[in-house]
Design a protein around this nucleic acid. Structure first.
Lengths: 202, 202
DNA sequence: AGTTGCGGAATGATCATTCATTCACTTTCT
DNA sequence: AGAAAGTGAATGAATGATCATTCCGCAACT
C-alpha cells in the first residue's frame, strides 16, 4: 500500500481543493461573481492566495469548478435512484421534495446556479453538465404527455422552464425577505405547479 | 419667455440624463453590474466620463437611477388605467399581455430588474418602488380570493412569487437559448399559470 | 539534502473618481 | 452693434484604490 495514513497525501490534496470550492461558493453566493475578489475566497477557505492558484489556473476556472460541482450535486440529489421513464404524480412529488431539500440544505449552491452572470464564463464542459440534467427531465415530460398524465399541448422545454421558474421564484422571494415558506406553503406551491402542467382532460 | 428654443436648456439637460440611464441599462444588461466599468457606459451614452459624474454622484447612484427608472416604466405599463380591485380572468389576461409586451419591448429593463446583484446597492427609495408594484398586486389577489375567483388557500405573496417566477423563468430560458417563445407558447404558459392560481372549486 | 506544498507580499492591470482645462453661450460694457 | 468678460457644462488625462496573478522564501515531508 502506498498510503496507509488516515488522510493520505492525494486525499488531503483533493480535500483542500474541495475546501476552496466550498469557500468560493459561499462567497460568490453572497457577493456575486464579478463582485468577489479572489483573496477573500482564499481567506474563507483558510488557505493562502498562492495555494488557491496551485489548484486552479485562474478565477474563471475556479468559477467553472464551482458551477460543475454544484450542478453535479443538484443532479445527484435529484435523479439518483429515480425512474424518470415512468412519470406519475408520486414521482412529481418526489422531485419536488428533493428540490426543496436541495434548496434548504445548500442554499448557496441553489442561488449560485441561478445567477445570471456566470453564463459568460462557462466552458463547453459546464454547458454539457447543464444538459445532463435538462435532457432526462425533458424525456420525462414527453413520456408524461404520451401517457396522458401531463397536458400534451405544451413544449416540454416550456413546461420545464415554467415549473423551474416558479420554483426558483418562491425561494428567491424568501431569500429577499418578501416571504417565508412554511411546509404548508411549499405543499400548496407544489400542488399549484402540478395543476399548471397536469392533464385536465378527465 | 426665458426659453423659446425647441430644446430649452433644462429639457436638454434632463435629456442627457436619460441618455446616460438608457446607455447604462443596456450595458448593465449585457455585462452585469460589477462587470461593467463606468467609462464604457459614458461611451455608449456618447458622453465624456466627466459628464456622467456631473449627473450622478457615483456608480451606485447611477445604478439606483437605472433601477428606479426601469421599475417605474414596468409599473406604468402594467397598472395604468387598470382596475385591480375587480379581478377577473380578463384582467389576468390583460396583465399577462402587458407583461409580455414589456418583456418584448424592453428586454434590457426586464432582465435588469431580475438581476440578483443589484440588491446590495439599492437605496431605501429603490426598495419603496419595489413595494409600489407589489402591494397593489397583493390586494388584487386578496380580493380575487374573497370573490372566489382565485383559490383562497394560498398566501397572496406566495401566489405572486409563484406566478412572477414562472413568467421570469420562461423569458430567461428564451434569453439563454433553451427555448423560443411563439405567441402560442405564451398563450399556453398564460393558461397554465392561471390554472395554478385560480379557484377550482366549481 | 531534496522535493513538494504553502503563503502572502509584490507586480502590473484595471477601475472609479477627480479636476484642470476647453468651449459655447450670456451678459455687460463702450 | 461690437468687444470684452463671465458662467457653467463638458471633457478626458491623471490619480489613487482595488484586483487578478505571480513568485520567492519558508515549512513539511521523504
Amino acid at each position: 500500500m502506498a498510503n496507509a495514513s488516515p488522510t493520505s497525501a492525494p486525499a488531503k490534496e483533493s480535500r483542500k481543493r474541495e475546501q476552496i470550492i466550498r469557500a468560493a461558493l459561499s462567497v460568490f453566493a453572497k457577493h456575486g461573481l464579478h463582485g468577489t475578489p479572489v483573496p477573500p475566497i482564499a481567506t474563507e477557505a483558510e488557505v493562502g492566495v498562492g495555494t488557491l492558484y496551485r489548484y486552479f489556473d485562474n478565477k474563471e476556472s475556479l468559477i467553472n469548478a464551482v458551477f460543475q460541482d454544484s450542478k453535479q450535486r443538484l443532479q445527484d440529489r435529484l435523479l439518483t435512484d429515480l425512474d424518470l421513464m415512468h412519470p406519475s404524480r408520486a414521482l412529481f412529488d418526489t422531485l419536488w421534495a428533493r428540490l426543496t431539500a436541495f434548496a434548504r440544505d445548500e442554499p448557496d449552491a441553489f442561488q449560485f446556479l441561478e445567477m445570471q452572470d456566470h453564463h459568460s464564463y462557462l466552458t463547453e464542459e459546464s454547458r454539457r453538465r447543464e444538459q445532463a440534467l435538462l435532457i432526462p427531465l425533458g424525456m420525462m415530460v414527453i413520456i408524461g404527455q404520451r401517457t396522458g398524465l401531463l397536458g400534451n399541448h405544451m413544449k416540454p422545454d416550456l413546461a420545464i422552464a415554467l415549473f423551474w421558474g416558479a420554483f426558483v421564484g418562491i425561494f428567491k422571494a424568501e431569500r429577499l425577505g418578501y416571504l417565508t415558506l412554511s411546509d404548508d406553503d411549499l405543499k400548496q406551491a407544489r400542488d399549484a405547479c402540478w395543476l399548471a402542467i397536469a392533464n385536465h382532460d378527465h
